[in-house]
């Protein structure tokens, strides 16, 4: 097994993705969870770079960190007084134990399934893959995936209107 600097970085990035997850799951402070989530998103973005998905990585950075996470922080700050923030992210103990058990079983099963299904996921290993994806993605978006592209824009419009109304009626 080859082990170079690239692999080292990969392991680091993977750890940066997974380890903060546990903070998201177990931290008692919702703000800490949110910060941990930031690192997870960042790590995922790094993983995308390793996948030669440069554009996707950028999208992840911009939308997830710039959009979703900020929205979450807004939500936290708008709904809580800052002073009792330490106790904000309580866990339902029974449920946590049960869910942990379920999740653990599922983990074992899926890993087992991945292992015994003898690499069902790599049947086209030798096909060509573009090194720079932005251009290819752009042309895909404007040819085959034009309809989803347009549809999602309409959806965003609808979401905009809807959330404005739902949030806006609070003013009165």
């Amino acid at each position: 097994m080859e082990f170079g600097i690239k692999e080292l970085i990969f392991i680091f990035v993977a750890a940066m993705t997974i380890v903060p997850c546990f903070f998201v799951a177990f931290s008692r402070n919702i703000l800490h969870s949110a910060f941990a989530l930031f690192f997870t998103f960042l790590g995922a973005s790094g993983l995308y770079f390793f996948l030669d998905a440069d554009f996707l990585a950028l999208v992840q950075l911009i939308i997830y960190i710039g959009g979703v996470l900020v929205l979450l922080l807004f939500a936290i700050l708008l709904t809580r007084n800052i002073d009792n923030i330490r106790k904000t992210n309580a866990m339902a103990k029974n449920r946590a134990i049960a869910a942990g058990a379920g999740v653990a079983v599922m983990f074992c099963i899926l890993i087992y399934a991945f292992v015994i299904s003898s690499r069902p996921f790599s049947h086209a290993e030798n096909a060509a893959y573009p090194a720079v994806t932005i251009k290819a993605l752009g042309s895909l978006l404007l040819t085959k995936y034009l309809l989803p592209f347009e549809a999602v824009s309409l959806l965003l419009l609808a979401v905009l209107i809807g959330s404005l109304v739902i949030a806006g009626r609070l003013e009165k």
Partner: peptide, 18 residues
Amino acid sequence: AYVMLLLFLIVIGVSFAV
């Protein structure tokens, strides 16, 4: 709790598959 039900039944279904 509803999600829990979902999780458990998926676990059951998946283990059944295995």
